[in-house]
């Protein structure tokens, strides 16, 4: 089974989020970049599925050379080879077109993404790829089993879950529950440097959206503390002042 895992290079979860250029650009000074945590789940699942010679795992990312460290981390975790499309990701549509363009030549059985990236929080790339390739997709899965050419997926729905089957090739977005996140071991780190990382130039894509500015949330006012022995006070504050109960 040939598996493609889409990797997004995102700010570490502890990053302080600030902006520059009159709030039009993310300020990446001093920011550490990591493999998007949901993509780590996708990658871990792919490695499990390919284990024991049952398949191969290719990771792909759209980014400039500064993303190479993140790609090497994915290789160290256990991917076999990597592709980097040499372009700054402009929006999800741009990224999806680059990946779909690469994937359509290579006959992957399964394309995995994380359920969303923790920077722009879109759940778009996976379904865009599926739409371009005209194959089925599930955007947020909590469990994934593959049997021959059939994938059985548990997907999240409001207040419960849905179990469905679909035919491969397909695109599946992964969330917690799909796999335990793997971390690179020493051997992985050593071999990562020798694994192939191919750089491909991007294709032209019409841009349909752009971020014009960012804002950070208004800070909240100071906390009103209520004594632990006076919970009735909290109830009346929530009712009369906050008006939420």
């Amino acid at each position: 089974m040939k598996i493609l895992v889409c990797i997004s290079n995102v700010p570490d979860t502890t990053s302080k989020i600030t902006f520059t250029n009159d709030n039009t650009a993310f300020n990446n000074v001093g920011v550490q970049y990591i493999v998007n945590p949901y993509d780590e789940i996708a990658l871990s699942k792919a490695i499990d599925l390919a284990e024991g010679g049952k398949g191969s795992v290719t990771v792909i990312t759209v980014g400039d050379a500064s993303t190479d460290a993140t790609i090497r981390k994915a290789l160290a975790t256990g991917a076999d080879n990597a592709i980097r499309i040499n372009a700054l990701p402009r929006d999800a549509w741009f990224v999806a077109n680059q990946i779909a363009n690469y994937a359509k030549e290579s006959n992957f059985d399964l394309i995995l993404t994380g359920r969303e990236s923790i920077d722009y929080n879109g759940t778009q790339v996976g379904a865009f790829i599926a739409s371009i390739l005209n194959i089925p997709s599930v955007s947020i899965s909590k469990k994934l089993d593959i049997d021959g050419r059939t994938a059985t997926v548990e997907r999240e729905i409001e207040g419960g879950k849905e179990v469905l089957t679909l035919n491969l090739p397909a695109v599946i977005g992964t969330a917690e529950g799909v796999a335990e996140t793997k971390i690179p071991n020493m051997r992985g780190i050593m071999t990562a440097r020798t694994k192939p990382l191919d750089v491909i130039e991007p294709i032209e894509v019409t841009q349909l959206s752009r971020i014009v500015k960012f804002e950070t949330p208004e800070p909240r006012g100071a906390v009103t503390l209520v004594d632990a022995s006076d919970v009735e006070k909290l109830v009346s504050l929530l009712h009369e002042k906050a008006k939420v109960i």
Binding site: W93, T123, S131, I157, S209
Partner: peptide, 23 residues
């Protein structure tokens, strides 16, 4: 922007050549 909506919106946007704002 529900669990199902998140799966639908990009597909629909792609077919309509439309830009998508989610969330």
């Amino acid at each position: 922007n529900s669990f199902s909506g998140k799966g639908l919106a990009p597909r629909v946007a792609a077919k309509l050549n439309a830009a998508l704002a989610d969330g």
